[in-house]
Each structure stands twice: as structure tokens, then as C-alpha cells.
């Protein structure tokens, strides 16, 4: 059995006669015990997909199964099997930390102590504040409480919709460490994020843009699918170099990456050719090397190839 199987799911919203395609025939499987990442910008269709899989939204067409149950016919069974942390804060602000947890345990008809072991590493960090109202918690603590509440009924599959959006790099890293730990309990995790650098924390990822998957694979395999030679250039003035290079016919793509530029060539020539091109065009640089692409390089290359 798979944790999630979806086949040709489409969803369109109509607002004031204007049609917006949220999902355009997407398909994927997530294995049991896998961390499956859905990576893409806001508005790509991530939340619609999560709402369909958690039985809160009906697809226009296509089929979807979670733990072997159909999202339309067997929605009641799915709701018992999944935990869901929506993108926006989902807790009751006027209830205390403990009351929130108690509430979620009660609706799923479980006792906190029966599943305390699984949530303990997370919940222990906020337990000293258990009498504080959820609305008065800091962002990081709210996130930990929401995760505890989504886990209290021992779900088989956990759906996390953009749990790290707007969160600083340190807290993001801590959150992913928590997920890796939860995976040890055999939990299947479907998680979405707009941060490309989080791809490497997933077993497999789907890159999503405008309602379509650009690629689905293990992060290192997506990187292997990047067929062009990628060069990293440290120039004396990146803005001038960027402008000059973008006008050259030989250049396929040129993007700033921090203090460097990442460049690919149309004919995929070797580094010597590129060096000559730089010299011919009097582009001064300190350092040039061929590098391995990252997921963000892959994402942009796939975006450009679809345009």
C-alpha cells in the first residue's frame, strides 16, 4: 500500500466568471514512511492539493487515495487516519496550550497519555507554558503546539502545509529536525514549502508551478536531470556582468545567486569557451568554476523550459 496515490487530479475555481486553474491533472504516489515534499511558490496549487487529500475540498476530476481510502467515498475513514496542519494558524487562540491539545484529543476520541510518547519531544518544549493562551504564544511555540495537536490521534499520514513559511533559518532547521525524528515512528509525511533549500530534507520531492508538476523524484536525481554545464562566476560587478551576459546569444541562462552568478550556455560548451567569451566581452571576474546545480537551479531551468 501507498500512503498517498493521486491520479490526474484537477481543480478549477471560478470567481466572478473568471476561471483560475489551481491543479491541472497532477499525479503522484507517496510511499509509507516517506517524507514527500511539494515544493513551489505561493499560488502554485499546493494548498488546494492538501485540502483535496485531507477531504476538505472536492476535485473536479481525477482520483485520490490516502492509506488506501478514496478521498470522496471514504472521507470519514481518511479523517481518522490523517493529521493536518494548515498553512494558517489553526488553533483556538482563547484556549490554553493544554486545552487545545485536550480539545483535539477529544474530537478524535483518544487520551493524551496514550500517545504522549510520540509528541513528547515536541510538546515538552511548550509544556512549561501549558496554562498560557495559544494566542499569546510566540510563532515558534504556536507551530510546536499545532504540530502536537495534529499528531495527538497517532495519524498514519501527516499533512503539513507550508509549516516553515516566514520562519527564520534557525527555526526552519529545528522544524525539519523534528520531522526527521517523527519519521522514525513510521509516520508518512507530506509537506509543502516555498523554500528550495528544504528539498534536501525530503526523501522525494515534487516541484510544482502553476498547477502542474515540473518534476517528481529524489532530490539528487532531479539534480542529475539537469543536463547543462553550470558555471559559477564571481565578477567585480555582478549587475554589469549580468546585463552584459544576458544580451549575449551564447548564453542560455544567467541568474544571481548571492554574490555569484550562475550561468549556462546554449550549446553547453566547456569552461574554456566561456572564459574566452568573458575575456572577449571584457567582463572582469575574480573566480569562475563549474559547479553542481542545486534544486533552485533545477526549478528555474524547468520553469524556463515550460515557458
Amino acid at each position: 500500500m501507498k500512503a498517498v496515490t493521486i491520479n490526474q487530479i484537477s481543480k478549477t475555481y471560478t470567481v466572478q466568471k473568471e476561471k483560475t486553474i489551481a491543479l491541472d491533472g497532477v499525479s503522484f504516489d507517496a510511499d509509507l514512511g516517506e517524507i514527500f515534499g511539494i515544493i513551489g511558490p505561493d499560488g502554485a496549487g499546493k494548498s488546494s492539493l492538501f485540502r483535496i487529500l485531507t477531504t476538505l475540498l472536492l476535485p473536479d476530476s481525477g482520483t485520490a487515495n490516502v492509506m488506501g481510502y478514496d478521498v470522496i467515498k471514504d472521507y470519514k475513514n481518511i479523517r481518522k487516519k490523517v493529521g493536518y496542519m494548515p498553512g494558517k494558524f489553526s488553533l483556538y487562540q482563547d484556549l490554553s496550550v493544554e486545552e487545545n491539545l485536550e480539545f483535539f484529543a477529544t474530537i478524535f476520541n483518544v487520551k493524551i497519555k496514550d500517545n504522549y510518547q510520540m509528541i513528547a519531544p515536541i510538546y515538552k518544549q511548550i509544556e512549561p507554558f501549558k496554562d498560557r493562551k495559544a494566542g499569546a504564544l510566540s510563532g515558534g511555540m504556536k507551530q510546536k503546539l499545532a504540530l502536537s495537536c495534529a499528531l495527538i490521534h497517532k495519524p498514519d499520514v501527516l499533512f503539513l502545509d507550508e509549516p516553515t513559511t516566514g520562519v527564520d533559518p534557525v527555526s526552519r532547521k529545528e522544524f525539519w529536525d523534528m520531522l526527521s525524528e517523527l519519521k522514525q515512528h513510521g509516520l508518512s509525511i507530506i509537506v509543502s514549502t516555498p523554500y528550495m533549500d528544504e528539498a534536501n530534507r525530503c526523501d522525494r520531492i515534487a516541484l510544482i508551478q502553476e498547477g502542474k508538476f515540473l518534476s517528481i523524484n529524489q532530490p539528487n536525481k532531479i539534480i542529475k536531470e539537469f543536463k547543462r554545464n553550470l558555471y559559477s562566476l564571481e565578477s567585480l560587478n555582478n549587475r554589469i556582468a549580468l546585463k552584459a551576459l544576458k544580451e549575449k546569444n551564447e548564453i542560455h541562462s544567467c541568474h544571481p545567486f548571492g554574490e555569484k552568478l550562475h550561468i549556462t550556455l546554449k550549446e553547453n560548451q566547456e569552461i574554456q569557451f566561456f572564459e574566452n567569451l568573458l575575456i572577449q566581452n571584457k567582463i572582469e571576474y575574480q573566480h569562475l568554476e563549474k559547479i553542481e546545480p542545486g534544486i533552485e537551479d533545477c526549478f528555474m531551468e524547468l520553469m524556463l523550459s515550460k515557458q
Partner: peptide, 20 residues
Amino acid sequence: DEPTGGVDPLTRREFWDMIY
């Protein structure tokens, strides 16, 4: 204040181009 949160990588770079 966090002007590019959740924006796709190509648009993020176009945004920074406008900043420059």
C-alpha cells in the same frame, strides 16, 4: 518587510533587479 516571501525564484530575482 519580507517582500519576496513565497515568491517563485525567477520573480524573486526580477524583484531584486527592481530594488537595484
